[in-house]
């Protein structure tokens, strides 16, 4: 299970936040899907919450460095990634599970995770161990040599998480990892999330408030490309009152904050 620990990992951090965005603007097609967001994420599990179309996926793609920001600043692990920089060094420390995550159906789980480990420049001698470790961590060890096309939706998603963590990332980005999972699979996923490394900065986007309330150390709520709220999960629950719609305190807090944001939005327009 020995994972090769690189010098970069043991080096002392010289940055206060793993992720720091300042006035970040990112276009999705012609639309400015992320329109001036300031936020900071340190280590821990961060929930990125918002209705569909709020700009969560675009924001996560910018954090994964696959979309170039149109404006503002973005620092990952203390390095600016908004300009024309070589991103290889930063990308080695990122794990990313896209929302519509596609894979090669004929690959076995192990082949798929191995291929991703190679793409992430995991040292050749450490690939086999790192792959085995990642597959065990997501609980797919008994299916490791089955083809991807034989997996259920929940298992495929877990294989997706295995490829995201195979390089031992310091920033882990999971875009809607619970979409399409049944309730028991969602519970399994939350447990998996709790078991991931504590010194990782994990960002989980979701539109399900309960996902966030149970596992996340803090929550960022976005709507219409802007940050509506960032705080602890408990503060989200405290923002709502009995009159707001929702079945739990967190849901009521969520709808109260969104309603307030809409109201101020209309007011200034």
């Amino acid at each position: 299970m020995a994972r090769v620990v690189g010098a970069a990992e043991t080096a002392p951090a010289n940055h206060a936040w793993e992720i720091r965005a300042e006035g970040l603007r990112v276009a999705a097609g012609r639309r400015m899907a992320v329109d001036g967001i300031d936020l900071t994420f340190g280590t821990g599990v961060h929930g990125l919450l918002g209705p569909n179309g709020a700009g969560k996926t675009t924001l996560i793609r910018a954090l994964a460095t696959v979309l170039r920001p149109s404006g503002g600043g973005l620092e990952l692990l203390g390095e600016s990634v908004s300009g024309r920089v070589d991103m290889r060094r930063i990308r080695r420390q990122i794990g990313y599970l896209p929302q519509d995550f596609g894979f090669y159906r004929r690959f076995t789980v192990r082949e798929f995770v191995e291929y991703m480990a190679w793409l992430k420049e995991v040292p050749k001698s450490g690939i086999a161990d790192a792959v085995q470790h990642a597959i065990e961590k997501v609980g797919l060890a008994d299916r490791a040599d089955d083809r991807m096309k034989t997996l259920s939706g929940g298992m495929a998603r877990r294989a997706g998480i295995a490829q995201a963590i195979v390089n031992g990332p310091r920033i882990l980005l999971l875009d809607e990892p619970t979409a399409g999972l049944d309730p028991s699979q969602r519970m399994q996923f939350r447990q998996l999330l709790r078991g991931l490394s504590e010194d990782t900065c994990t960002v989980v986007s979701t539109h399900l408030v309960e996902d966030v309330a149970t596992v996340c150390t803090d929550v960022a709520l976005v709507d219409e490309g802007r940050l509506v709220f960032q705080g602890r999960a408990a503060d989200l629950a405290a923002a709502g009152s009995g009159t707001d719609s929702g079945d739990s305190p967190s849901e009521r807090g969520y709808s109260a904050l969104l309603a307030r944001h809409h109201a101020t939005g209309e007011g200034t327009r």
């Binding site: 290889r88 990308r91 896209p98 519509d100 596609g102 894979f103 090669y104 793409l119």
Partner: peptide
């Protein structure tokens, strides 16, 4: 054409080399 396009594009090896 490539189902894993987004996954692959986000990796350090993506680019001219690959």
């Amino acid at each position: 054409l490539d189902p894993a396009y987004e996954l692959v594009t986000a990796t350090p090896r993506a680019g001219l080399y690959l």
